[in-house]
């Protein structure tokens, strides 16, 4: 699980072009949206693509994203349970 979280942080930084943010800067329970990392609606869409591309998870309803992308913790838990690759 710890490895998955580290991997996720690194992928999010890369995919979302988070300049000047390092893996150590993201805490597992920090909110990804709003005040936390300050991600926005396009980032949320990009995270949906990331789930599909890297872990073979297709969200049936994009609205599910809100709960899944709350933090690294929630994202990692969802991926661990649902990944197909």
């Amino acid at each position: 699980m710890e490895a998955l979280k580290q991997e996720l942080k690194s992928k999010i930084i890369e995919v979302l072009n988070l300049e000047d943010i390092a893996i150590e800067d993201i805490n597992d329970n920090d909110p990804l949206f709003g005040d936390g990392l300050g991600l926005d609606s396009i980032d949320a869409l990009e995270l949906i693509v990331l789930l599909d591309k890297e872990y073979g998870i297709r969200l049936a309803d994009p609205k599910q994203g809100k709960a899944i992308f709350e933090s690294i913790e929630t994202m990692a838990a969802y991926i661990a349970e649902n990944r197909t690759k």
């Binding site: 995919v15 979302l16 396009i42 980032d43 869409l45 990009e46 693509v49 599909d52 591309k53």
Partner: peptide, 9 residues
């Protein structure tokens, strides 16, 4: 095939 919304915009 992974169309990227962040690129498309």
């Amino acid at each position: 095939y992974f169309p990227s919304p962040a690129v498309f915009v």
